[in-house]
Each structure stands twice: as C-alpha cells, then as structure tokens.
Design a protein around this nucleic acid. Structure first.
Length: 577
RNA sequence: CGGUGUGUAGCGCAGUCUGGCUAGCGCAUCUCGUUUGGGACGAGAGGGUCGCAGGUUCGAAUCCUGCCACACCGACCA
C-alpha cells in the first residue's frame, strides 16, 4: 500500500472528547471514525487489524473443533420469547417492527439462534459434543457508550456455543476453550490479559471466567493476590479472609445523637471509629419484598453478592414508606425491633461476628451502643452471609496477604451454561438407550474491537500504538525521505516491490514530505518493522532498519536488505504462532 | 435514566457575558516556488444555512423558549 493512496487521515490534534489512549490513537491514526454514539466505521487500517484479529481467533476456534457459522443479525421476537428473554431484557435489546408489524430485534447475543440450530440439526448423542461459532456484528443499545472501541453499541464479536451430552464433557471442553483463549490473547500480543473467576449473573449457569486486559481505563475492578496468580476475582464476587473477634459483651445503651445520621457523623459525634458501628441498608424488590441488610460501618454492601444471595436482580433502595412499614426509622434504622414477618433480615458476617456495635435505635435522634448479634436479636429469623465489597489491602482468601486492586477491560468470557437455553427451547438428542436428553451447553465470547483497542492501551508510546506483528496493519513500513530525489524514490520502490514479491505486507511512504512529518505518521500507524531510505544512507549504499519500539536499530546494504527484512519479519511472526 | 459540559469550515479553537459593517485564527486541503533526518517557509486560493426550530429586535453566532446531538461522571451493562 502507498501512503499517498491510504484512506484515513492522520490528525495532529487529539479529538477534544477522547480521554483514553486507544480512543485518541484510533482517531488520530485514521483507524476508525465515529458515526454516532458508540457506533464506529472501520477505515482500512482498522479493518486490517480487525481482520487479522479475527483470523487468529478463527484458527484457534477451529483447533478446538469449532465449526464456523453465521447467524442473522435480525431475529424474531418469537424466537426470543422461547427463552423469555424478549421480555426480560431491558432497553439494551433493540426491538423494532417490520413492515407487517411483526416484532423483531437486533441480535445482542445468539444463544437462541444457535440453540435453534442445534435443536434442528442434532438428534443423536453420536453428534455430540459439538461447538459452533461465528464472528459477527452485535448490537447492544448501551445506555452509555464510552472510551472509543472499549464500550460501543455496535461491534464485532466472536461468539461460540458448545453442546454436550454430559456435564463432565462440558467441563473438559470448557478447559480446552480456556486454553484456546489463553493462546488467542497471547497471539494477539495481549500480555496483560488474565483470566478471573466471575459472576455468571443473569446469563444463567454456574462456572464462568472473564478474560481481563489489565488497564487503567478498564471498567471492571479486580482483586488479585500479591503474586497475581493465586487469587484473581472480579469485585462482584471477590471475597476476603476476614477475621472478626468477639469481645466481652457490654450492656446496651441508648445515646442521644442529634443531627447525626450517617455512620461518619455518628462516629465523629461519639468519638469512635466507623468499624465500631453497624450500618443498615434497606432494599426492596419489584414485588415489594423488603430486605434489611446489616453490615459493619467500614464495609460497603456488594449488591451483586446480595442479589445473588436473595435470587433477585431487581433490588433497589427501599422507599421511606417501605422503611416505615417494617417498623424502622429512616436514618436511625436498627435490626432490633423491626418486624421479621414483613422483612427479610440479612447480616453480613462483619456485623454478625463483631461485638458491641453502635446501631440505630429506630427512634429519631437516637442510636444504641453495644449491639451484639447473638444476644440482641432472634438469630433464627436472620440470614448471615458474605455480602461485603472487598477493598484493596483486605486479606487474600488464598494467601492471606493483602489483596491488590486493578482495573480490567473484559475482552472475553466463557460460561458453563448448563441447560438454561436447551431446556427452554427443547434442544434434545437421543442417548444410547433411545431416550431424549436435554443438551448441556457452554458459551464463549470475545470482543474483537475491544481486544485490539486493549492492545493499544497496553502497547504504545507518546507517538502512537506499537502493534505486535500478528495484528499490525502492515508488517514493514518503508519511510522514504526526500522522495523527490530520483535515486531515493527508485531505491524505495525497488524495496517495496521485492518485499511484496516475498509475501511481506508493506506500506510505502511515497509522498515528498519532511522527515518529521513522515516519522510522526509512521509512529501513529505503529508498524513494527521500519526501513528508512534517504540520500544520506543511500550515499553509503545503505538503508536503515528500526523497530517501532526502538529496541533495534541497524543498517543493511541495499543488496542484503530484502533478505534481512524477510528473515526478521518471519522471526517476529514465529513468536505469535 | 440522573449530574456536568460542549455544539461556530475536515480537526482544534476565538468571538456569545455587553446584539451592529463582508464571522475570525491555527492545522488540514488546492496552486506556484523555495525547502527536506522528528509535524518547514513564502505567495495565492477554496471551504460556513454559527446544531435545529420558534420567538424578541430595525438588526441575532450573541438575548429568550423548546428540541436535538456529542462527550465526561454516575446508574445500567447476558
């Protein structure tokens, strides 16, 4: 490709709204252009990176016996009603009607579509296990797209679905998929990706892992053991090895606490610490069931854990009326004296296992000192569990050392789905005895754009991205200085043609521009191998070779340059196979 | 969906508070010339319904009302 022909202007100034590195460089380098909030067009450079990313994913999926398919983007409400998701998913599912007023939707994921295929195409245990996948456009009507390609509404995703006749088979295949994912991210040059345990959330099923690219701009908060491998978990499910010690119980004592409602205010007023307090958080679900949650003052309720524990996704803070209804007083709510018939009482371990806490008195302007779980409420009406949000420095459940907090971009995930979809849709096969059995499923996703955006987050300098050769838009960039001089132009044209003839992907600078201009453009394009052809070098019969990361600088004679570069490129490529 | 902010040339911005001649600047683009190892210089040229609609006014980019779009923070996120 010739720079003079390449579509996608390099832009000197960063777009004013872009905050994240990958967003800035993708726009500045001419990789992508925005169309609408969270909707991007890929320009030639971006498309080439996407295509290479997809090719690597495809190879690895094929290696674990994946069979590539392509499902429609547009599906019918009818299909999605089979699993109930047409009605259960919120506004991020884009629904619309066709000309005949038939209800349709834009696919945001394809469990239904693939399960429908499995239902019709698989009838015998002899066909199992099987894995089907696609690399296709997804549409999710995100409430808030952000950070360029990190969170978008329309994007390319590799989604895969496996079907099995036993849980054991699913589990062993799941391990294979996990290994395939590790190979994929390694081959994409994503050295910063780790796999962590995650909450399977509303997806159904039990076991799941997220593949997180560790990056400051990541939306997810992760907790890792100090060694980075013994324990790795998303904040939504992270646990810590807390030790709470019981102290001798003191007598209950009511204290007048005027103008003090929050834990901090009360602690300041009473001259003690927030961990000497019990905090009450009151939720309700859409059916009006109220939940009284008690946790020690220095902890925050982890709503993901709470939702999982109560089995409801629709928890919101209770209204003042609901709080009054259960016999509590807003701002002074106490676990003592509320009606256990009207409310589910849940204690975090921190509140149940600590002693002499200060809690509300269920009386305007008053708190009670020295609350003790075992003594002061009917524990048979209370659930005790772990619903605390882990904090950096809390003791690791595996090593006991302080947990380290990181942020991550979720670039992939794998789930053991079980029979949630196959059951709902009647995806069955006949076993050896001729009996109909429900297929057991797994699913496996990777965001293509998010992955290569994460590569930039991890691999860049002050001038632009530094692409790994496995997904770089081209392999070699020939920078021609003084292209107006015939001998220089001739030399770089010759290198261009000869390298191409050897199967190398080359970008040729054929514009007559200043060196600084050329190098800045080249840095924004980030191609790993660079040849510089200039009058200065040429006079000595040399061309200069440099890697984008600045690690290697050498000079080759004109005669040996092609051979040398082919060798270097092939050696580099070999690192990503 | 809540909070904040921004919409003026392809990009980045000034002008808006305090209404007034033909709406400016830098970068980018086109022409000519000089330059050429980290975003050159000179001369010339093109490019705008000032986000949209309505209103106030002799006169609106500027004031008023409504709407739309985009970004950031939060909620949400299979």
């Amino acid at each position: 490709m010739r720079m003079s022909q390449l579509i996608g202007k390099r832009i000197k100034e960063a777009p004013k709204d872009a905050q994240t590195i990958s967003h800035i460089y993708m726009i500045r380098g001419g990789y992508v252009r925005p169309m609408s909030a969270g909707i991007y067009s890929l320009l030639p450079l971006g498309k080439r990176i996407a295509a290479k990313t997809e090719a690597i994913i495809r190879e690895e999926m094929d290696k674990i016996s994946g069979q590539e398919c392509l499902m429609p983007l547009v599906m019918t409400a009818e299909l999605w009603r089979e699993t109930g998701r047409y009605d259960s998913i919120g506004d991020e599912l884009l629904r619309f009607k066709d000309r005949n007023s038939k209800e349709m939707l834009l696919g945001m994921t394809h469990e239904e579509a693939f399960t429908a295929i499995a239902r019709s195409e698989i009838s015998s245990y002899k066909q199992l296990p099987v894995m089907l996948y696609q690399i296709q456009t997804k549409y999710r009507d995100e409430a808030r797209p952000r950070a360029g390609l990190i969170r978008v509404r329309e994007f390319t995703m590799k989604d895969a679905y496996s079907f099995h006749s036993s849980q054991e088979c699913l589990e062993s295949y799941y391990m294979e998929a996990h290994e395939a994912y590790e190979r994929i991210f390694k081959r994409l040059g994503m050295t910063n990706v780790i796999s962590i345990e995650s909450d399977s959330g509303m997806m159904g099923g039990s076991v799941s892992h997220e593949f997180m690219a560790v990056a400051d701009c990541g939306e997810d908060v992760l907790f890792l053991s100090r060694d980075g491998t013994s324990y790795k978990a998303n904040r939504e499910i992270a646990v810590a090895d807390y030790k709470f010690e019981k102290q001798p119980m003191k007598e209950l004592e009511e204290v007048h606490t005027p103008n003090a409602q929050t834990i901090e205010e009360v602690a300041t007023f009473m001259g003690d610490a927030i961990e000497d307090h019990g905090k009450a958080v009151i939720y309700s679900d859409d059916d009006g069931q109220v939940y009284f949650v008690s946790i020690r003052g220095d902890f925050e309720v982890n709503e993901a854990k709470l939702k999982k524990f109560v089995g409801r996704a629709d928890l919101t803070f209770a209204t003042d009326e609901q709080v009054a209804e259960i016999g509590a007083v807003v701002g002074y709510a106490s676990p003592m004296g509320i009606d256990p018939e009207k409310v589910k009482i849940i204690f975090d371990r921190s509140a149940a296992e600590s002693s002499n806490l200060t809690v509300g008195a269920n009386k305007e302007g008053y708190h009670v000192k020295n609350f003790n779980f075992d003594r002061d409420i009917d524990t048979s009406k209370v659930s005790v569990t772990d619903i605390a949000t882990v904090r950096a420095g809390d003791p690791c459940p595996v090593t006991g050392e302080p947990l380290v907090e990181k942020r991550g971009i979720e670039v992939g995930n794998i789930f053991q789905l079980g029979t949630k979809y196959s059951e709902a849709m009647g995806a069955k096969y006949l076993d050896q005895t001729g009996k109909a059995q429900t297929m057991i499923m797994g699913c496996y996703g990777i965001g293509v754009g998010r992955s290569f955006a994460s590569v930039i987050e991890d691999s860049h300098d002050d001038y632009g991205p530094i692409w790994p050769i496995s997904i770089a838009p081209y392999q070699v960039h020939i920078c021609t200085l003084n292209a107006n001089k015939a001998e220089v132009k001739e030399a770089s044209e010759k290198l261009y043609k000869e390298l191409q003839a050897k199967g190398i992907e080359v970008l040729l600078e054929d514009r007559n521009e200043k060196a600084g201009f050329i190098f800045n453009d080249a840095d924004l394009i980030g191609i790993p191998h660079r040849l510089i052809v200039s009058p200065k070098n040429l006079k000595q019969g040399l061309v200069e070779y440099k890697t984008r990361d600045g690690q290697v600088k050498e000079s080759f004679t004109i005669e040996e340059a092609v051979e040398k570069v082919v060798t270097l490129v092939n050696e580099d490529l070999a690192n990503y196979r």
